[in-house]
Design a protein around this nucleic acid. Sequence first.
DNA 1: GTCTATACGTTGATAGAC
DNA 2: GTCTATCAACGTATAGAC
Lengths: 225, 225
Amino acid sequence: MPQSDAGLDPAQEQGLVEAWDRAAAPAARRLMIAAVEAFAARGYHGTSTRDIADRAGLSPAGVYVHFASKEELFYRITLVGHQQTLRSALEAEAASGPAASAAERLRAVVAAQTAFEARHHTTARVIEYDLPCLSPEHFIEVNALRRQITAVVRGILADGVKSGEFDVPDVDGTALALLSMVTDVARWFPANSRQTPEQLGRLYADLALRMAAPHGTRAADAPGH
Amino acid sequence: MPQSDAGLDPAQEQGLVEAWDRAAAPAARRLMIAAVEAFAARGYHGTSTRDIADRAGLSPAGVYVHFASKEELFYRITLVGHQQTLRSALEAEAASGPAASAAERLRAVVAAQTAFEARHHTTARVIEYDLPCLSPEHFIEVNALRRQITAVVRGILADGVKSGEFDVPDVDGTALALLSMVTDVARWFPANSRQTPEQLGRLYADLALRMAAPHGTRAADAPGH
DNA sequence: GTCTATACGTTGATAGAC
DNA sequence: GTCTATCAACGTATAGAC
């Protein structure tokens, strides 16, 4: 993956380290970071356990002290990554306040998720695009988290429609399209763009509001409640 | 890939057969179809040449009569797929007529590309998401085709801005976001949706026009040229 | 063009010393 | 917890008969 063999930048690594804090052994953390880099660069099947062990400074056998299998290592990364993503979305929505309009909540969530995908693009690439490599049981578990993320966006769109702030004929289809747009950032960022994650978040939030706003009015001018 | 182990449906197969018509030997066609199915289901690295040979009804060695390597088989699929995609975009734009407005052209291209990604979702999944598995030389070649597809969208957006039909502060960023939305259809279709490719095309074309239209006016009511 | 047989590196994972 | 050594299976690709 030409644009994805870059290592984790400091901001990204800090985010991961925080999230993986409870993964007791330092070696387990190093393995997860090494695995994220390798999986992002070459995909799950394109990465050998030797690759991962090398990057983490361990022997090939060292992996199996901390993880029962390659799939389990991948599963841990995927699970934590999705939990982080969901938390980011919920926090962004909550931060816009209890009296926030649907437009404000949509802006907050889309901006946060977009910036998140950009900032953590290495991790995001792994957890967004290699998902089918999980075992069936783990796939189901992670998919439940994904559905919660979709539900956040769907809920905001539906609320906006109910209050008259939005004009969205197909809430489910629009939510899916919107999340496609946001998620795909991880695939190309930072190539093709000189923008910061925050700038990108603002652009995508604007686009999302345009997608949801009634024709003929600005979202901000829409009838509130 | 739970949602991707479905075989090629008749419409899809016909499209492929047409496109691969010049691939002389019938066995070569069977191999390409078999490879598309296998790559879509398990990814490039997750697919063995034995898998492909089996699906095509050949022995493991049979592959190498028609393709020098697994990568070359993948490259042929990827190249033809991108050529088809680009042609589809150019034809859609041309079909909207020489005097078409930017809005009409945007609608035509987005609808066509979205329907294309849905209809050929098996092939599209392979050529959109396994691209980094190409050799560096082949990657560069295919990327040139991708840039042409991006250029079509960028051109329409820029024309619309110049004529006053559109209000797009960031043409490049918006084109990228728009193509992300469209491309990602291949990843999830037909799960999560009971819509036909054509219905989906109309929805996405509407969303694209909302993204580009000036705030406060319908695209169709925008000042013309 | 297709087969059988096979070369030979790599893979995920384990055994057992330290 | 980490290592060295190793296994059995599988990977891509080739040789040579038909």
